[in-house]
Write a protein that binds this DNA or RNA. Structure first.
Lengths: 219, 219
DNA sequence: TTCATTAATTAGGTTAATCTAATTATATAT
DNA sequence: ATATATAATTAGATTAACCTAATTAATGAA
């Protein structure tokens, strides 16, 4: 069953909110899509009728198996296109999100498979996020939130949770990219901010908002 | 000024109809976009207000300079994406039209230039159609309609005017592609059909509809 | 527990792009 | 020139996706 551009964005948003362990409420969806909760209710009804989600006020929205398959398919396409934009066209990793948001909606039965093969079947996108396989299986790897890393420990940046342009620009300014090493020098209890060293550079203070969006491969 | 998906399709259709030397009437646009003349009138008003076209009943629609620039930009992106799909992803030339129809609307200031460079600055798409340069200039080359070729003369297929899937499937069935040689064995006056030999193969009869959609480089 | 706040939902409207049916204008054929 | 056919246009609806404002439900703090 073919889906509209907008339906696909809702499925993706629902998937992401759920992955973050949050309740998928109309308010949360509206925040993710930068629109109005009243609009979200309309779409919830539509997606329910199409059997792509279930919904009740208490539990929020849940993707049905076909709904989840659709969401993963869109995420797969999004991340494959990001690899294309960075690896083949030479964009920086902080420039590709908005373009991939558009490209992910291109409809063709064979496109994702052909793109995947052309790119050499990558497992992770330029932000380190796993690319679902055709069957929806996610490549996994051990990682830990920077905010959970103890004082004195080190890790290598494996992926970032927030892939918005402002956040990635901030990371660029910190000279921090995938594979950069981070050492936790100190944690400030009162606001959960951290003092870290990037690639053995000088100490820098970063907010808890930042540290809760960086995933590390511990070492 | 940003344009909607639909506005872009109208500009493109108007450009193509004009290129074929036809009057760009509401009826002609509706036929090209497979919609209703009443809908076309609405959009004509909108495009006029945005100064992308001029229109009067007698002369039909004409693209203004900014309208033409937009149309060429969309056609440029369409044809670049077609090259990508065939050259890089391994699609056949008769499979890429519908995908390129979607890809041509992806918005990013630098995308066309980067794609162009990645593809090696191609001058023609897989159907032999010229790819406009960034400044709108078209690469040109001498060619002649198969329907205008005299009996006994030969030519090589340089491009096709109709790039619809049914037509391209028909060409594939005839084993006819870009670069194929065609010899005109006979013309039937009563319905303008032709008997031709493709790549020195057996004589085949083709309709005037077919011959008026094949462009040849004469030899 | 009760009041205040926040979230969810309903009701009704808007916009873009489409449609059908009716009308007006133009072109064509006899 | 007049009837007929075709094209252009208007009028009024429809659909998807959104909105604001009002209402109802749930949560949480005193």
């Amino acid at each position: 069953m073919k889906k509209t551009y907008s339906e696909e964005n809702y499925l993706k948003a629902i998937y992401h909110i759920d992955q973050n362990g949050l309740k998928v409420s109309p308010k949360a969806i509206a925040a993710a899509l930068d629109n109005n909760p009243a609009s979200v209710i309309d779409m919830i009804k539509k997606l329910q009728e199409k059997l792509l989600i279930s919904y009740d006020k208490v539990n929020g929205a849940k993707l049905t198996p076909p709904g989840k398959a659709s969401a993963l398919d869109i995420i797969r396409k999004h991340r494959l296109w990001e690899v294309f934009l960075v690896e083949k066209l030479g964009y920086d990793w902080d420039e590709v999100h908005d373009i991939a948001e558009q490209l992910e909606h291109i409809q063709d039965d064979r496109l994702a498979a052909k793109l995947d093969a052309f790119l050499g079947n990558p497992s992770f996108d330029p932000h380190g996020d796993p690319i679902p396989a055709e069957n929806g299986k996610m490549p996994v790897y051990a990682n830990i939130l920077l905010s959970d890393l103890e004082i004195g420990k080190m890790g290598k940046v494996g992926s970032v949770r927030d892939t918005s342009t402002p956040f990635l620009k901030y990371l660029k300014q910190l000279q921090l990219g995938l594979g950069s090493s981070i050492e936790v020098l100190d944690k400030l209890e009162f606001d959960q901010s951290m003092i870290i060293s990037i690639n053995n550079g000088p100490p820098q203070t970063v907010s808890s908002k930042m540290t809760s969006n960086i995933l590390l491969i511990p070492c």
